[in-house]
Write a protein that binds this DNA or RNA. Sequence first.
DNA 1: AACAAAGATGAAATCGATTTCATTCAGATT
DNA 2: AATCTGAATGAAATCGATTTCATCTTTGTT
Lengths: 329, 329
Amino acid sequence: MGMNITEFAALAGVSKTAVSRYFNNGYLSAEKRAAIEEAVRRTGYSPSEAARGLRTRRTRQIGVVLPRLSGESTARVVDGISLVLGDKGYRMLLANTANRPEREVEYLDALRQSGVDGVIFLASIFTPEHRAVLKSMHMPVVIVAQQYDGYSCVYHDDLGAARDLTSLLIRRGSHPAYIGVTAQDRAAGLSRREGYVQAMREAGLPVRTEDMCVSGFRMEEGYARAKDLLQARHPDGIFCATDAIAIGAMQACRELGLRVGEDVLIAGVGDTTLGQVTATPLTTAHLHYQTSGQEAAQLLLRLLSSQGAGVRNVCLGYEIMERASTGIL
Amino acid sequence: MGMNITEFAALAGVSKTAVSRYFNNGYLSAEKRAAIEEAVRRTGYSPSEAARGLRTRRTRQIGVVLPRLSGESTARVVDGISLVLGDKGYRMLLANTANRPEREVEYLDALRQSGVDGVIFLASIFTPEHRAVLKSMHMPVVIVAQQYDGYSCVYHDDLGAARDLTSLLIRRGSHPAYIGVTAQDRAAGLSRREGYVQAMREAGLPVRTEDMCVSGFRMEEGYARAKDLLQARHPDGIFCATDAIAIGAMQACRELGLRVGEDVLIAGVGDTTLGQVTATPLTTAHLHYQTSGQEAAQLLLRLLSSQGAGVRNVCLGYEIMERASTGIL
DNA sequence: AACAAAGATGAAATCGATTTCATTCAGATT
DNA sequence: AATCTGAATGAAATCGATTTCATCTTTGTT
C-alpha cells in the first residue's frame, strides 16, 4: 500500500524509470523485468492511479449517465457496458440522474471535471441544455438508445419494431389504439408512435388522435391511461410503447372484465421478464439491450484509441415475440 | 478546460494559494474571494481532480461491488446508494462481477489500487479469499445484505421474514416444502432456510430433507426444481427463498394442472414487481432494498468523516405482503 | 504606548508517477 | 580500425493541485 515508486525501485534494485517502463511496456532488459516482477510479487506494489492520471491525463474511467437503474432495460445496457469495459481494464463511473433532466446536465458537467476518459450517455430526453453541455465535453461521447446528430450512437429500430407489432395486432383482427410516452423521448416516444401510425396507414385504417394517448413510464400510469381509453373508446386492441405500460393495460382490461388476447389484443415493446410471467404472456419486441451496451462500450474504446475516428452509428434490430396477449397461439 | 491553477491565479490576480483556499474554504479575504468567484464564472475553471487526488489522497469516489445488475433487488440497493452519495458530492465506481466470485476478489483488489475512499460490497457469497482481500483493504468497507463480523453491515431480517411467511403458509392450511438457494449465501440461503425450519418446528411439523431443495437464482431453475418437487412429493405448499424461484414454481404448478392459492400455496421473498403481475399475485416479504442502500452509503460516509468510528450494524425490518398465492383473500 | 494573539498571505515543498533527453554500450557495417 | 545503428539506461523536468511555514497586518488588551 503506502509505497511509492521510489521506495519500490530501491527495493527492487532498479531505477524509477525502469519501474515505470515495466508498467508501461517500454524498453527493458529481461533481467530487470524479472527483478521487478519478483519484487511486485513480494510487495504487492502497484502504481498510484492518481499520480499516473495527473501525468498522463488519462484515468481509465468511463462515465455512464443514466436516467434510472430500476427498469430492466437500463440494467441490461449497463450490464453490457461493464462486460466490455471490465475486460479492457476500464472502470465505470455511474451517474444516476433519477429521471431528473436537470441532474443529467449537472452530472455531465461533474464527469467532465472529474476527468473521465469518455462518456456513455443513456439518453431519454434531449433539451437545449443537453446539447450545450454535450458540446462542451472535450472527450469522446457515445449515446445509447437515441440517434443524435454529430455523435456516435447505438440505438434500436424502434420504428420498425412498433410498425411490425402494430401490423401484427391488425393481422390478428384488431383495430388497435395507442398508448405511448412523451414525444420528447424521440426513441420510445416519437419513433414508436410513428411506427404505429405507419402500420395503420399501410393497412388503410384511420389514425384517430382520440385513440392515442400519452402515459408515464410506470405500470400504474399505463393502467390509468388504459382504463380511461378502454372506457371511452372501447378499442379491441392496444399497442403500448413499453412493456410496463402494456402490463398496466392488461390489468385494466381484467378489471373491466375484458379478456386479454380475446376481447382486447395487447402488445408492448422491450421483452422484459415482466411480460413473460403475466397471466396472459405479452406479445412484444425483444430489443438487444445488453448488446447495445457492449456496442456502445466498444465504440467508445475505439474512439479513445484512434483519436477522432469520427462518428459511427450502430442500429440494432429486434425480434417479435408473439405470445398469447395477441390471441391464443 | 486546459487551464491550471497557476494560469487561473494569474488571470484572477491572486496567488495559487488563494485559489486553493477558495476551493477548500480556508482563510481568505472577502475581496479575493469575490475576485476568484468572478474569474470562475468567466472561465469555468475547476481544479483538476487528479492533482487534487494525488496530493490529498482522497478521490471522493466510492467503489460498489455487486454480483449482478439485472435483478430488481440489486438495482434498488444501488439506487439508494447513488441517491445519498450523489447528494454528498461523491461518485460511484461500479464493479459488476457478473456472478463470478473470483471476479469479486479481483475487483476488490482493483478498487483498492484505484484509490477509492471506501467500498460498499453487495455480497452474496463469502469465500476465504474474500476474507483475505477484505482484510487487506486499508479503507472503510460497508457490507450490504450480509452480516459479517468485524465490518459495518446493513442487512435484512431474512430469518424473521422467512419464519413469518412459512407460518403464514402453515396457518393457511398447508404443510409447506422448501426451495432455497445455496447455503454459501448466508442471508438468502442459510437464514431463510433457518426461518423455514424454525416455523415448521414451532408448528410441530416434521422437517424432512426430502421436502427441501436448492435452486439457482433464476426463474427457470426455480421452475425445474419445483416441477421435480411437485411430482416427487406432492406438497400442498412451497416456501421459496426468492420471488424469482416462486414465480418459476407457480409456472410449474400451472403446467401440472395445480391451482396456485388453492391446490398449492406459494410464497416468495423480496417483493419484486414480478410477483405483483403474475396470474396469481405472489405472497412475499417486502425488504427495504433502497433503504438499505441509503443506510449503507450513510454508514460509509460517517466512517469516512470520523476515522475509525468503529463497526456499526443496521438490521432492517420487513413487511409481509399477503396476496392470492397463499389463498384467496 | 507596548505587546500579544489572531488573521491573512504567498513562496516553496510535496504528492507519485511519466516522459524527455542525453548518454552508454554492444553489435553490425564499411 | 573506424563508424554507425539502435537498444537500454537513469537523471531531471513535469503534471496541477495542497499544505507547511515564515512573514506581515490587524486587532485587542493592559
